[in-house]
Design a protein around this nucleic acid. Structure first.
Length: 434
DNA sequence: TCTGGGGTCCTAGGACCC
DNA sequence: TCTGGGGTCCTAGGACCC
């Protein structure tokens, strides 16, 4: 790390944050251009967008659908938000729907009240993932140092890319923006700054289809006036605590002594708050990472009871375990920690987990151990969500790659033998112990 | 009319070891 | 027998992000 930094050129750091504009809605509009400008809410449904036309054929067999394609379905035939029942939330909403107060993460029942005429479309995850891969590969062909931050966001290190320094990064940002639009038909917004923290804020400055450059000397004018909530890492809880101290902007945060922040927010978080308020962030752009856990969870249509809805709950539980096992195998992982998550009707969540001596990707084994975890929680209360999680992941085949002198807890060695070997080892290190 | 699903990271206490 | 300090692992909960 250190050597890398000293041997590299002394070019100023140019970190870009890119996110796709209204990504889920934009993907839907590619398929249904006739919805442009109309209030559309995405989310809630379990049905694939592809199925819409097939459903219309079934529902209205008397009508001639021969000339109708997905992009030419008459507006009348799209499902409306009015009358929606269920527990879905809006993944996103078009600008026309936002004008009615509908926002992402809002319950669809509430959204239906605000804008009943809005068209409701289910998320087409396959298509969203396909376009996600497409825009990311478009980026890496131009600038290879890219960090994946989710379905519609990335960081890119422009610093050493040819042309990455031109116009403080604006030229390369323009090229990437144009290339993504050509490849996907969707626009994006890009912020370029000396680090990830500022770049993330900058990408929001000029939405949609915007580019913003923030230089170190812009800290006071562009960053300090922003509310603390704009900092990636300050959520609703921390923001409320800051507000209670009269700290409403990043500038106000920067006025506080580091010691005061540590006193009120703890060593780690207080220290971090102080650093970010002064625009300091040294985190590198990380191009590869290993997953830590995989999970599946579901919220029921109605709250279930462990005894009264035993059969239904059992079937869902088995399905979740099978799905996690399938996910593990698909990605080539096994895990040692099996856990469950419950959400009660009052929204309180509890988790239980257990760590096994050996990693597994077997559905029956996961189901067995998760079942034991389930016995450790209160099952007399009504449940709205059930989840299954596998953590402490290892890639089978690479886990045996420990060095020869390694004598720690190896998964393939039974516990009793492990302990014995360990005792022998300590005997050598501390011969005078007994 | 409450509030999805899939993640990461941090904290804190207790067990256990040296 | 008492005291103590450092370290790791496990577990539960919670904040936060996309």
């Amino acid at each position: 790390m250190t050597t890398e930094r000293t041997t590299q050129t002394a070019l100023p750091r140019r970190i870009a944050h890119l996110d796709m504009d209204a990504f889920f809605a934009s993907v839907e509009l590619l398929r249904y251009p006739q919805l442009k400008g109309l209030p559309v809410v995405i989310g809630g449904g379990r049905r694939r967008a592809d199925d819409l036309l097939a459903r219309l054929r079934d529902t209205y067999p008397e009508r001639d659908w021969s000339e109708t394609t997905l992009d030419r379905i008459p507006l009348d035939f799209f499902p409306r938000l009015a009358g929606y029942t269920g527990r879905g939330v809006a993944t996103t909403a078009t600008y026309a729907a936002r004008q009615f107060g509908v926002g992402s993460a809002m319950g669809l029942m509430k959204a239906a009240k605000l804008c009943p005429q809005a068209i409701l479309l289910p998320v087409d995850f396959d298509e969203v993932r396909r376009i996600s891969r497409l825009f990311k590969s478009t980026i890496t062909e131009i600038a290879p140092v890219m960090e994946d931050r989710g379905i519609d966001e990335v960081y890119i290190d422009f610093t050493n890319v040819p042309g990455g320094q031109r116009e403080n990064g604006r030229a390369l940002a323009r090229l990437i923006q144009r290339s993504i639009h050509q490849a996907t038909g969707i626009t994006c917004s890009i912020g370029v700054a000396p680090n990830k923290l500022i770049a993330k804020m900058a990408s929001e400055f000029n939405k949609p289809n915007g580019i913003s450059i923030v230089l170190p000397e812009d800290l006071q004018t562009l960053i300090w006036p922003l509310p603390c909530r704009k900092i990636n890492g300050v959520g609703p809880k921390a923001d409320a605590r800051l507000q209670a101290h009269g700290i409403h902007t990043i500038g106000a945060l920067a006025e506080r002594e580091r010691g005061w922040l540590i006193e009120h927010f703890g060593k780690s978080y207080g220290d971090w708050l102080h650093a970010v308020s002064w625009g300091r962030d040294e985190r590198p752009v990380v191009t590869e990472s290993e997953p830590v856990s995989m999970s599946r969870e579901t919220t029921f249509e109605r709250d279930l009871h462990a005894v009264r809805d035993r059969a239904e709950l059992g079937a869902i539980f088995t399905r979740l375990c099978a799905q996690v096992a399938a996910d593990l195998r698909a990605k080539g992982y096994q895990g040692k920690t099996i856990g469950i998550k419950l959400r009660y009707d009052n929204f309180q969540s509890v988790t239980r987990d257990v760590t096994l001596p050996d990693a597994t990707d077997d559905a029956a084994s996961i189901r067995r151990h998760a079942g034991l975890c389930l016995k450790r929680v209160d099952l007399t209360r009504r449940i709205r969500l059930l989840g299954v999680r596998v953590g402490k992941l290892v890639k089978p085949g690479t886990e045996g790659a420990a060095p020869a002198h390694y004598s720690g807890n190896h998964p393939s060695v039974p516990r009793s033998v492990q302990d014995k070997a360990h005792d022998d080892h300590t005997h050598l290190l501390f011969p005078d112990l007994d």
